[in-house]
């Protein structure tokens, strides 16, 4: 599974893509607020957004699958 995981526990501040959007591995797909920083989380894979598992305001633990790319 091409999963976008939380590299650090935090809060979803903004989701920058929607289901079906084309993304590239270096493109930020969401902003995860953690450690006093609005961390831009990259897609890590080239492809299309298959599913988004989080919404703004959600708190996610480390390694939580936030999004799936296909």
């Amino acid at each position: 599974m091409k999963a976008v995981k939380a590299i650090i526990p935090g809060t979803i501040l903004e989701i920058l893509v929607k289901k079906g959007d084309k993304v590239t591995h270096d493109k930020p797909v969401l902003i995860l607020e953690a450690m006093k920083m609005n961390n831009r989380i990259q897609a890590e894979y080239d492809g299309k957004v298959k599913k988004i598992y989080v919404k703004v305001g959600d708190r996610v633990p480390k390694n939580f699958v936030m999004m799936e790319i296909e």
């Binding site: 590299i7 650090i8 953690a34 450690m35 006093k36 920083m37 961390n39 831009r40």
Partner: peptide, 8 residues
Amino acid sequence: QPNYLAGV
């Protein structure tokens, strides 16, 4: 590196 893990 603030771009990765907030630079922790």
